Simulated assay, not measured.
Amino acid sequence: MRQDPFFITIIKWACWSFVAGVGLANVIGPQGSAFMMRMWTLCAVFLGVSVYLHFANRELVKYTLIPFCMILGIASYQYKFDTDNPDHVINYINTNRWDTSKVIGVIEKDPDVRDWITHVVIDPIEIDRGRGYEKLSGRTGKIIVFVSQNIRDENPYYDTMDYGDLVEVTAPITEPMRLTNPYGFDYTEYLNNENIYASMYVGEAEGIKYLDKTSIGIWGGFQQMAFRIKDKMILGLKKTMPPPYSAFIGGVTVGARGGVPEVMKYDFQATDIAHVLAISGLQVGFLADMLIVIFNSFLKSKLFFFTLR
């Protein structure tokens, strides 16, 4: 049996060690900023030793690189779920349900348009809880804003909400609904994995206001281009296929969640195949195969794909 090259073996062990570190961190849970800083310090130590051994004794590198990658996985997990920052949004949640806050932030993702509501994720910059705006800094977490379709007639901005917009949202800041069924879907944990720790509901026209367009940078430009392509694909499906089939195809190809009738959703849930309505690796594989066929038809030479075995 042919032995893998040294660097391929190192890459394999490094990847598995990183995954093991993330899994271990998931078991012990978030431990706070102090623990996270200790992990980053250990990462720096093992990385320095690995660099030294690379020149001194190459065969010993794996014995320091493996713990480095494992600790890196732990530190990355702790960083993602670190909420110790005083400016984190969990510290601004309204304890009184009648209190109202104002948040100025940037729309972080393409608005997710549903049948009767639109989900908008914002990165908060300033928050006003009745005593004037407080500027936030550091890792603050994000807020998901549920914007009701009922405001469409009175607020024309509902139909033009876009990635990169600077907006002001006026509504109570609440904690996302927690899991009540121990064996059900934990929506709060799902949002936390997306770095979302608070929610707001806008049911009045004055609840969301457009302020300005922010600079999204080069990476943001690529994201915006992807969103534009997605919107054009959805529009093309709606023009060529009648509902609800266009909504179904849009869901399994580009992840569009609006337009699928509730009756169809219930039918899929009753037959335990509701996951088909969401984009997954299977659909991405179909799309990749389709693109390969298209490219191969235009290119004279075959496309080669290299994988690490």
Score class of each variant (00 low, 15 high):
E134I: 13
V120A: 05
E175Y: 13
Y163E: 05
E175G: 01
E134W: 04
P182N: 08
T140G: 06
D128W: 04
G132H: 05
R131G: 11
I117E: 15
I144A: 00
E168C: 11
N181E: 15
Y133N: 03
G141D: 00
M177D: 10
V121G: 03
Y183R: 15
A198S: 14
G130V: 07
S137N: 09
D165G: 04
Y190N: 09
L191S: 08
V145D: 00
D123P: 00
N181Y: 12
I144V: 10
T180K: 14
E194T: 04
P156D: 12
P124W: 07
I151M: 11
R129L: 10
T174M: 11
D153F: 14
Q149C: 08
D128P: 00
N155K: 11
Y158A: 08
I127Y: 00
K142W: 00
N181S: 13
P172H: 08
D186S: 11
Y163W: 07
F146C: 07
D159S: 08
N181V: 11
N192Y: 15
I143A: 02
G130H: 06
N193F: 08
E126L: 06
I127D: 01
L191I: 12
A171K: 01
K142D: 05
S199W: 03
D186C: 03
K142P: 04
N195G: 01
S148Y: 08
A171I: 03
V145E: 05
E126R: 12
W116E: 15
G184P: 09
I143E: 03
E168S: 08
V167H: 06
E189P: 04
A171L: 05
T118S: 14
G141K: 02
V121N: 01
D159A: 12
Y163M: 08
M161Y: 10
T180L: 13
Y163L: 00
R178P: 01
Y190S: 14
T188K: 15
G164A: 10
R152S: 14
T174R: 14
I117P: 03
G130D: 10
Y133S: 06
T118E: 10
G130F: 08
E126Q: 13
Y190E: 13
I151V: 12
T170A: 15
I122F: 07
D186V: 07
G138H: 05
P124S: 05
F185C: 01
D159N: 08
T170Y: 01
K142M: 11
V121Q: 01
P156V: 10
P156R: 10
T140D: 02
I125C: 02
N195H: 10
F146V: 00
T170S: 15
Y183V: 08
I144G: 02
N181T: 09
K142Y: 07
A171H: 06
V169S: 03
E194P: 00
R131P: 02
Y133P: 00
Y163K: 03
V167T: 09
Y190T: 12
V147A: 10
T174C: 06
